[in-house]
Design a protein around this nucleic acid. Structure first.
Lengths: 109, 109
DNA sequence: CTCACTATTCAGTGCTACTATCTACTGGTA
DNA sequence: TACCAGTAGATAGTAGCACTGAATAGTGAG
């Protein structure tokens, strides 16, 4: 992975996954696969699982264990009220950053 | 500082400062002041100086020591060819991320 | 001569993504 | 039987970045 991307994902990947979870529960393996489809080809599976554990620990998601037809049971994550609030705040933070950057791109200071 | 912002700045702040430096040399104190004007009120001075040292070490900037009317001499940083190349790559990386996020914001997956 | 402003540096900390590896279940195939 | 590919999740150790908090140093105003 390009190092720039690795650093830029810090704090952003969290928002991406939270946004994915908005209104649509999902489990780790599924999330990883979807990210790869979207072009995030180098995101490690371990990274996603660690992220989901953090979400759970912070109380942003509800978790349900669901048996799978293939392989071990899935842990299905869904955004709860606190998670949605956190996602809103993420969008506010991202908007701020995004606006500054667009301004800079269009001719600077 | 909101923790979300702290994490999101990782990798992004680098691009912001590089973009500021594009076509217009500046020194640390000046950069910090300008960032504060732009609403980045909580970015620590130490953070900017550390960033500039990294730029220098990686050969992205040229440095010139210029005496100041007030206070100790300034270290004026200007983007060199390698720095501009790195900035281009930053914009590409950021565009990619930005597009995915806008897509997600507009209704997800 | 002390204060405020300008200007830079640095040691120590916390958080996040990455690497690499391990466990575990299912179904197909040689 | 033995093995492999695909599905699913966990974890120890590492690197990089922004932050905290402090120190140093020069100038001019009161």
């Amino acid at each position: 992975m390009v190092k720039q991307m690795t650093e830029m994902l810090k704090g952003t990947l969290e928002g991406i996954v939270l946004a994915m979870l908005f209104g649509r529960p999902a489990y780790g393996y599924e999330i990883t696969a979807w990210l790869r489809e979207q072009g995030f080809t180098d995101i490690a599976e371990g990274t996603i699982y660690a992220l989901l554990v953090r979400f759970e620990r912070r109380g942003l998601v509800d978790v349900e264990k669901v048996p799978s037809e293939k392989g071990p049971p899935r842990k299905v994550y869904s955004l709860n009220a606190q998670g949605q609030e956190y996602l809103d705040e993420f969008w506010r933070t991202w908007s701020f950053l995004s606006e500054r950057l667009e301004q800079l791109r269009e001719g600077g200071r």
